[in-house]
């Protein structure tokens, strides 16, 4: 069980949270509604093997969104 530090509530068990995944790169306004660019934004992922920044949501707590850095090889949460 991961212990995730919510910036408001402190350390809590992983099943209070929902992982929001890696941050996505927004296309600039010039891209408009180009299908390939939107698909890249909405669906494609770096799926990093190693340290990655990710969003988490304290779903069963204060309901805040925040970012942590986690190593996807061993789930260690990095400072």
């Amino acid at each position: 069980m991961l212990v995730i530090a919510c910036p408001f509530c402190g350390p809590r068990a992983e099943n209070e949270f929902l992982c929001g995944g890696e941050p996505v790169r927004r296309p600039d306004a010039a891209t408009g509604a180009d299908g390939a660019a939107l698909a890249e934004l909405l669906y494609a992922r770096d799926n990093v093997r190693g340290p990655q920044d990710e969003f988490w949501w304290h779903k069963h707590g204060c309901r805040a969104w925040f970012r942590i850095r986690r190593d996807t090889r061993d789930n260690r949460i990095l400072p």
């Binding site: 992983e14 995944g21 789930n75």
Partner: peptide, 13 residues
């Protein structure tokens, strides 16, 4: 599991 990982070991939850 509810989050991506390459750890190939599942969560106790």
């Amino acid at each position: 599991d509810a989050y991506p990982s390459y750890a190939a070991r599942g969560s106790f939850a």
